[in-house]
Design a protein around this nucleic acid. Structure first.
Lengths: 223, 223
DNA sequence: TCTCTGTATTTTGGATCCAATATTGAAAAT
DNA sequence: ATTTTCAATATTGGATCCAAAATACAGAGA
């Protein structure tokens, strides 16, 4: 292992495994519905099954994997109903976060949001799906964090996680990437004018488009 | 172990430990802020540390315990801000659940709600704090489950869990118990008339009272 | 007396081994 | 041919053991 890697590697194996599992799920290397063989995965990641199982327990709590006693873990699948439910809950929670955040937004916060948006636009132009997903997330979470409600922000993060496995498919389409860029600009504009109502409205549109694009993808998965 | 116990005991040790930990936290045997010594607890519960640690990971995900690498787990404490945040999020999510549930309420659902309320009243009269907490929870969750949004219901459950450690203190006061009974009746009445607006309003009042009563208790904990 | 340092002890993190459960497949009976 | 039963195998659950980190503590030095 290079010094670089060693420095970035988390202080415990379970945290390392947790990060790896998240990546594997969001990048699609572990497909929704796929069973998780502990022995194979542990060997692949060069750890024993103990830290792997603890990491899986966390993901189970977050709903990213499902578990049945004596049967094991599977990558969670989303039904259409699940997708709509997750986005409806996000709508409720994100509206609250935005309304709390807007009056607290400082110039430094706006600068961070603009920096995040720059990165989104760069990734969109380059067609870098993975960077796009990351940057998009940074943009939204930066805003939500400004609400000063850490538990709310955490809940929203968890909800985002549950659809991460499908998000990369969404960004595979260049039309989707461009629309995301435009919608973010509208949100940023509303935030600059300190208009919570408009910011909420632009994000609602943003989400609705995502749902509309994701629904057919889920149908395919559901086979 | 008696046959009775063996029958009720979950199929895996971790599930058993998980249930025991929840009980210990909600009943106050494990106080908020208390460190969790794995060796001692494992011996007390007659299991090894492995299932205990997996159960703790679940509770960590739910926010009932906090964890620091190489330092271990502690029962989570709630600050005043945390309490207000949790109840604000509950307000948002529970309103959604009620509005979805009301038009779907069948007579059988109402019957179940009334049965739950009977149990609440029995426990309140008997001054049985533990039974009161359980019955109260059954009452509310029965309603939320009627929304047909399993993820939403699960989120709400998790939010309830985070304040469970303090709920039993709340029910220790007979005035609080009586008020809960009355407020439930108001909610039931609104539900019978299929009035979502009124049901939401009664539940908002219900929650606000709980927050008002819990805040001073948290101050004491915060020392 | 206070602080710093090094060591002993405690506690957590992880690996290996064994047990229990589930799954698979083959053989036997209908 | 189909179904059922039973054994073999694979996979998960749990216990024990060892390693690593953190904490507590004692002693030396200022």
């Amino acid at each position: 292992m290079s010094p670089e890697e060693a420095r970035r590697r988390p202080p415990t194996a379970q945290q390392f495994v947790l990060a790896e599992l998240r990546r594997a799920i969001t990048t699609g290397r572990l497909r929704p519905g796929a069973p998780i063989r502990q022995d194979a995965l542990a060997e692949e990641l060069q750890v024993s099954r103990v830290p792997l199982r603890e990491a899986l327990k966390i993901l189970e709590g977050e709903g990213l994997v499902t578990y049945k006693a004596h049967k094991g873990y599977c990558v969670a699948t989303l039904s259409l109903d699940d997708l709509r439910e997750v986005y409806r809950i996000r709508q409720l929670l994100e509206e609250e976060a935005v309304r709390r955040a807007v009056p607290r937004l400082g110039d430094d916060d706006l600068a961070r949001l603009e920096a995040a948006q720059d990165e989104v636009e760069r990734a969109a132009a380059a067609g870098d799906v993975s960077a796009m997903a990351t940057a998009n997330r940074v943009f939204h979470m930066t805003l939500f964090d400004c609400a000063g409600m850490p538990r709310l922000a955490r809940l929203i993060r968890t909800l985002w996680d549950t659809t991460d496995a499908y998000r990369s498919m969404y960004y595979g389409d260049s039309g989707n990437r461009e629309r995301v860029v435009k919608e973010h600009r509208a949100t940023l504009d509303a935030l600059r004018r300190r208009s919570a109502d408009e910011a909420v409205a632009t994000l609602d549109v943003h989400r609705d488009h995502a749902v509309a694009e994701l629904e057919p993808l889920l149908d395919v998965q559901g086979r």
